[in-house]
Design a protein around this nucleic acid. Structure first.
Length: 469
DNA sequence: ATGTTC
């Protein structure tokens, strides 16, 4: 039965709850950060039913959480956070998603918009040329087995050793771009083969690299501390672990489904398939996921290098430096410590379409194509109410299929061009799925997370050039 | 998201 707004208890203006009493198999409540407007978008799909299903996971603590950009996903809603107790709580590949360590990275230039405007079309073309994109697309690098294992084991640390990253970049990457639990031996050959040629490639769907202008500064101190200024040109990228992470997810969903019956794990939806973190299957998945996460961080690092080269080629010495502001994941599992009911506890935090947002940390939120993106700052409160997490983007409000049916591609292209946005897109069909009408309103999503106290606005970005697969 | 239906 579809869920209605009356089934939800309003805790405050920006937080709603489905109480544990709603269904007998719930172990904790389900909580949704949303405004009434966004909740009406959210209730159009099955995301809240999916969220309720996740409250039944063995070992879940506090509550299952949905961010204001939440929408339906594989088993778990996208825009969700589930934390289970360490070490025996459930870990589920569906709680992290198929694109392991999908995330966002932001590079800051020293130039303002008027300074690069004459070169904008050239810059967009150079970025499109330098960075391979599209489904199944490979890159320049052909890694040997040993090199691929090194990327999987060490992530960006290996790229520093090889001169593809600066030591000073590392502290600006979540987990220093390297999860130590990673074990390449936990990946199938199939996963490795799919990933081998894909390092330094963008992919397709909602993945992109774009040139943005800082359109608005909200918090002068916080923006200045991050090195942001009005009209500054910055480069935003959104991508993940490509075919490699996808194959890891597929492989381990099968492993979990097979292992569950003898472990006595019963869940309301097979798409929630998982095993205790401490089990062999749980440990193997976590090590494989960590390796895929390292691959994704290395991927974003190499794309940043490619973007830096394209930038220099087009702008020459006058281009100056592109420095890394931050790189943050929004599809990942982490072991973190939280106070739950006054007690410090280790938790297996599973973020799927939810961004880590620790106090003082830059938080990067890409909006839908042609709209705004945001730089936020994490808060102390997120540690109390959202396992140090916030939203990850605008979040779909239309399925890919519905978007293809309803979006007129010519109108969409004209709309972007009339806004002065340079667009380089490999697939027109893919473009329709990313139309802003297919997504929720990013300004509304960000307003909610700020009002709920789980992130603070630092700056708003507007695209001037977009490159997509 | 994804060698877009192993």
């Amino acid at each position: 039965m579809p869920l209605k707004i009356k089934d939800l208890h309003r805790i405050h203006d920006w937080l709603w709850e489905v109480p544990k009493s709603y269904r007998s198999d719930m172990r904790v409540p389900a909580r949704i950060f949303a405004s009434e407007i966004l909740l009406n978008d959210i209730l159009r799909d099955r995301s809240i039913q999916q969220l309720i299903n996740t409250t039944t996971l063995p070992g879940i603590i506090q509550a299952a959480l949905a961010m204001p950009d939440t929408h339906e996903g594989y088993g778990f809603p996208i825009g969700g956070v589930v934390a289970t107790v360490y070490p025996d709580g459930l870990i589920s590949p569906g709680g992290i998603g198929y694109d392991i360590n999908c995330g966002v990275r932001l590079l800051l230039s020293e130039l303002n918009f008027p300074e690069i405007k004459p070169q904008l079309a050239n810059l967009a073309a150079a970025l499109n040329h330098a960075i391979p994109s599209g489904v199944g697309k490979g890159g320049k690098l052909k890694l040997s087995n040993q090199e691929l294992d090194a990327v999987l084991t060490k992530g960006v640390k290996w790229l520093v050793e090889k001169g593809h990253a600066l030591q000073e970049d590392l502290p600006k990457i979540e987990s220093l771009g390297s999860l130590k639990e990673a074990d390449p031996a936990m990946l199938s050959n199939h996963a490795k083969e799919r990933g081998r040629g894909q390092l330094g490639t963008l992919g397709a769907g909602n993945h992109f690299i774009e040139v943005d202008r800082v359109a608005e500064i909200f918090d002068a101190d916080s923006a200045a501390a991050m090195g942001l200024f009005q009209d500054q040109i910055v480069i935003l990228m959104h991508t993940g672990s490509r075919g490699l992470g996808h194959q890891v997810a597929s492989d381990y969903i099968r492993v979990m489904l097979k292992a569950m019956p003898s472990a006595g794990i019963h869940l309301p939806d097979p798409e929630l398939a998982g095993m205790p973190f401490s089990s062999v299957e749980g440990q193997n998945y976590f090590r494989a996921m960590s390796a895929a996460a390292n691959f994704a961080w290395a991927n974003r690092q190499l794309i940043a290098e490619e973007a830096r080269e394209a930038w220099s080629k087009v702008l020459g010495n006058a281009g100056g430096k592109l420095s890394l502001l931050y790189d943050v994941a929004h599809n990942i599992a982490k072991i973190e410590e939280y106070a739950v009911d006054g007690q410090k506890r280790q938790a297996i935090v599973q973020r799927k379409g939810a961004t880590r947002a620790f106090p003082k940390q830059p938080v990067l939120i890409p909006g839908s194509m042609g709209t705004a993106s945001y730089v936020l700052e994490g808060t102390e409160k997120s540690l109390e109410v959202s396992f140090g997490s916030t939203c990850h983007g605008a979040g779909r409000r239309m399925s890919r299929h519905a978007a293809q049916r309803e979006i007129n591609i010519e109108e969409l292209k004209n709309s972007l061009q009339s806004q002065g946005i340079e667009i380089q897109a490999g697939s027109l069909r893919g473009l329709a799925e990313e139309a802003p009408q297919a997504y929720k309103n990013i300004d509304e999503v960000v307003a909610v997370v700020e009002k709920a106290g789980i992130a603070r606005k630092a700056a708003r970005l507007k695209p001037v050039a977009i490159v997509k697969g």
